[in-house]
C-alpha cells in the first residue's frame, strides 16, 4: 500500500515537473498552448499544433477570437511573429492588451482597407493573403478571420493552406462562421452557453484525448472593469431618462460647481495668491 502511494507521489511529482518544463518559453515551438487548461487538455498535442490548419467553428460571439488571440500571445511570448487576416475588418485593437497580445509583433492585414470602392475584400484575396503569409515562414501563427464575409473556403484552397502550413511549420487558425465550415485538419466547434463555451472536437487527424469540454467565460480572458457582474441579470438604472433630448452642457457647468477654482464667477479671474509669504 505504501509502495503504491509512493509511486503515485512520484508520478505526481513527475507530472508537476513536466508541466513546469512545458510552461517555460521554448526555442523550438511545436505547439501553441492557449493557456486555457480545459482547451489544452482537449487537444491531442496539448495545444494548437504548428504545421496544421486548426478551425474554430462557431457563432460570432462564441469566444473563437479570444482563443485565437491567446495562441497569438503564446507565439509572441516565444518571440515569434503573428499575423491576423481581418476579413470583416472587425478586430478591435484596444481589446488586445487584456489578452496579452503585443500589437508591435502582430501584422494586421485588412484587404478591405486598401479597396475604398468595395468595403469587402474578394474571397480569393483572403485565401491568397493567408497562403503568402504561411509560405513565407516568418509567422508562427496566422489567423484568418472569415466571420461575416459570406465566404466559404473551398476544399482546394484549404488543401493549399494545409500544405503551406505543413511545409513552413506555421499554424493557421481559421475562424469560420456557423453557416460556412471549412476543411481544417483539426476542427473545434464552439457553442456559447449561459456560463461559458462548450468546445467540442468535431474533427481531428491526430486522434482524440476527449470529445468536449466546458470553458467558463472568465477563463477565456479578463472581462476588465466589472468581472463580478458576469452572468448576473442587472436591471437598467432608473436614472436614465429615455425621453430627455441630448443637451449640450454650458461651459460654466463643466467647472467645479458654477464658479472657478477660487470661487470667482466665470470670466472673472482673481489675482494669484502670494505663495512666498508665510502661511498664517
Amino acid at each position: 500500500m505504501d509502495a503504491a502511494r509512493g509511486n503515485l507521489e512520484t508520478v505526481e511529482r513527475l507530472r508537476a515537473h513536466i508541466q513546469a518544463l512545458q510552461a517555460a518559453p521554448r526555442t523550438h515551438l511545436a505547439v501553441l498552448r492557449t493557456g486555457v487548461a480545459a482547451v489544452d487538455a482537449l487537444l491531442p498535442s496539448g495545444g494548437f499544433p504548428l504545421g496544421q490548419v486548426v478551425e474554430l467553428w462557431g457563432s460570432a460571439a462564441s469566444g473563437r477570437l479570444r482563443l485565437a488571440l491567446r495562441a497569438v500571445a503564446e507565439a509572441q511570448r516565444a518571440l515569434r511573429l503573428a499575423a491576423y487576416v481581418d476579413g470583416p475588418g472587425e478586430l478591435y485593437p484596444p481589446a488586445l492588451a487584456a489578452l496579452g497580445v503585443n500589437p508591435a509583433r502582430l501584422l494586421w492585414v485588412r484587404p478591405s482597407a486598401a479597396a475604398a470602392s468595395s468595403p469587402r475584400p474578394r474571397p480569393s484575396q483572403l485565401d491568397w493573403v493567408a497562403l503568402q503569409l504561411l509560405r513565407s515562414g516568418a509567422f508562427a501563427c496566422v489567423v484568418l478571420d472569415l466571420t461575416h464575409t459570406g465566404h466559404r473556403l473551398p476544399p482546394q484552397a484549404c488543401k493549399r493552406l494545409l500544405d503551406a502550413a505543413a511545409h513552413a511549420g506555421g499554424l493557421l487558425l481559421l475562424l469560420t462562421p456557423e453557416e460556412a465550415p471549412a476543411d481544417g485538419s483539426l476542427r473545434l466547434r464552439m457553442e456559447a452557453g449561459p456560463h461559458g463555451v462548450q468546445v467540442q472536437v468535431v474533427r481531428s487527424r491526430q486522434g482524440l484525448r476527449a470529445r468536449s469540454a466546458h470553458v467558463p467565460w472568465e477563463a477565456l480572458g479578463a472581462w476588465g472593469a466589472a468581472p463580478q457582474d458576469a452572468g448576473r441579470l442587472v436591471p437598467l438604472p432608473a436614472a436614465v431618462e429615455l425621453d430627455r433630448p441630448f443637451q449640450r452642457p454650458r461651459p460654466s457647468e463643466v467647472r467645479n460647481g458654477r464658479c472657478g477654482i477660487q470661487g470667482q464667477r466665470p470670466g472673472r479671474d482673481l489675482a494669484l495668491p502670494d505663495l512666498t509669504s508665510p502661511r498664517p
Binding site: P93, L96, A97, P103, W108, V109, R110, A113
Partner: peptide, 12 residues
C-alpha cells in the same frame, strides 16, 4: 498586391 494601407500594426 493590396496596397500599403492594407498592412499595419493594430494601435489604440
Amino acid at each position: 498586391a493590396l496596397g500599403p494601407d492594407a498592412l499595419s500594426s493594430p494601435r489604440a
